[in-house]
């Protein structure tokens, strides 16, 4: 985009800070939602036997534990990957940047 056209298309070249903030917040929220979708699907398989007239407390506790373990697992994998990277870097260039 050259400078003469940018004046007619104001707001396209420069980013509106309010809009940028909005996009950041929404992206964050969407990541949350996406993970909720993913975990619900996974935990459903583990915790739900036959859908009854209400979500019983056992199933509910199972879902909560399932979420906790899912996140533990993510963190464990991340930590372990970090550890192995330190001792034996496999992707040294791509991760050190």
């Amino acid at each position: 985009m050259d400078s003469s056209s940018s004046s007619s298309a104001a707001g396209l070249g420069s980013v509106d800070p309010q809009l940028q903030h909005f996009i950041e917040v929404e992206t964050q929220k969407q990541r949350f939602q996406q993970l909720v979708h993913q975990m619900t699907e996974l935990c459903w398989e583990k915790c739900m036997d036959k859908p009854g007239p209400k979500l019983d407390s056992r199933a509910e506790a199972c879902f909560v534990n399932c979420v906790e373990r899912f996140i533990d697992r993510s963190q464990f994998i991340l930590n372990r990957l970090e550890q192995t990277q330190k001792s034996k870097p496999v992707f040294s260039e791509s991760l050190s940047d």
């Binding site: 859908p51 007239p53 879902f63």
Partner: peptide, 18 residues
Amino acid sequence: MCMDRYMDAWNTVSRAYN
């Protein structure tokens, strides 16, 4: 029933994650 329970589960997961 399954749909209702799935939405319960979704909300439970959302709360637990939060």
